[in-house]
Design a binder for these strands. Structure first.
Length: 320
DNA sequence: ACTCTGGCCTGTGGGC
DNA sequence: TGCCCACAGGCCAGAG
């Protein structure tokens, strides 16, 4: 599943291979992938076709290409082409002749370009998505309330797409504030994992990295958020940042490839997971201490949570 | 205003 | 063999 590190890998790939190129035409094979573009498929194609990609920016799991009219650069661009990978989305750069993927949904023809060695680059950007939880849409850019850049990217414009305005900054964003997060977390009346998955409070964390961070910080998913003290918040933020940085480094093996790809943590990072998907297997931290403890899978929020019952004991005042 | 549930999607795998 | 259901899970609309 693409979470923040996987989306960042895609962002870097797009930034490297698509920045500065013009989207010459658009073909929409499945309108469901444009569900969030309320003005419809024709409007989407009309806006995107003929636009030049100025920058590629990410906040949490949202990714966007800042557009400008080809040949008419503006001081402040007005729209962005948003992409969300959902659970199964991929953005691929390929030759137009390459056989279509089974779940190919949108095809974007790019202007010709060459790499630093003068070799022609492929001219198609494809959006492939099996489950269609993800999608693309055009969003209006608005000034950020704090005047800081809208997210992580190279352009560093203080602009944020309207539909991403409610998304909190993610832990890898230089403008992320641990103090603000702590204050807002304490104000919640809910369980800790629910808060970690709330993209309006802190973005980029999905089920996999939530479980990994909770394991690393030795915290239970049902701990009430209003019991979190400042050192607890520090501990979980350190854990989140650490696991995401390691996943990003592992995903970075494909940076040089023209193939901008995402298979989620099942690809590169799966073997480094300590908790997620390891029900019935020994907790490695306990094993290192000479204890034999088996990780458990528990159902919570309609999904799975993996945890070590020794390292992460259930609090008496558990909140779900 | 905040919290929480259900629905959107398709493919896979286990049980009968 | 084939059918059915549970599961995977990010995000948002709408209910409470």
């Amino acid at each position: 599943m693409p979470e923040l590190p996987e989306v960042e890998v895609v962002r870097r790939g797009l930034a490297r291979w698509v920045t500065g190129r013009t989207i010459e035409s658009v073909r929409v094979l499945d309108a469901r992938s444009l569900r969030r573009h309320v003005a419809g498929v024709e409007d989407f194609m009309g806006t995107v076709a003929g636009s030049r990609v100025r920058d590629v920016v990410r906040r949490g799991k949202f990714l966007w290409m800042i557009l400008e009219e080809s040949g008419h650069p503006e001081p402040l661009p007005r729209v962005a082409l948003m992409a969300h990978l959902g659970m199964s989305g991929q953005l691929l750069i390929e030759e137009p002749e390459a056989p279509p993927e089974k779940h190919l949904r949108v095809r974007l023809q790019l202007s010709a370009a060459t790499d630093e060695d003068g070799v022609n680059l492929p001219t198609e950007l494809r959006f492939v998505d099996q489950r269609i939880f993800g999608g693309m849409f055009v969003a209006e850019l608005e000034p950020t309330p704090d005047g800081q850049p809208g997210g992580l990217g190279d352009g560093l414009l203080p602009l944020i797409p309207h539909q991403a305005g409610h998304i909190a900054r993610d832990p890898l964003d230089p403008a992320f504030s641990g103090e603000d997060f702590h204050v807002r977390l304490r104000a919640r009346r809910t369980g800790f994992k629910r808060a970690l998955l709330d993209q309006g409070l802190i973005s980029g964390i999905g089920n996999i990295y939530a479980d990994e961070a909770l394991w690393a910080a030795r915290m239970h998913y049902a701990r009430p958020t209003d019991t979190m003290r400042r050192p607890d918040t520090e501990r979980i933020l350190d854990a989140v940042t650490s696991v995401m940085s390691r996943a990003l480094a592992a995903g970075g093996t494909s940076f040089d490839s023209l193939y901008v790809n995402v298979n989620g943590s099942s690809g590169y990072f799966a073997r480094e997971l300590e908790a997620y998907g390891r029900a019935g297997q020994p907790c490695r931290r306990c094993a290192a201490a000479g204890r034999h403890t088996l990780l458990r899978r528990e159902s919570f929020m309609g999904r799975s949570s993996f945890l070590c019952p020794w390292c992460q004991p259930r609090p008496r005042n558990a909140r779900l």
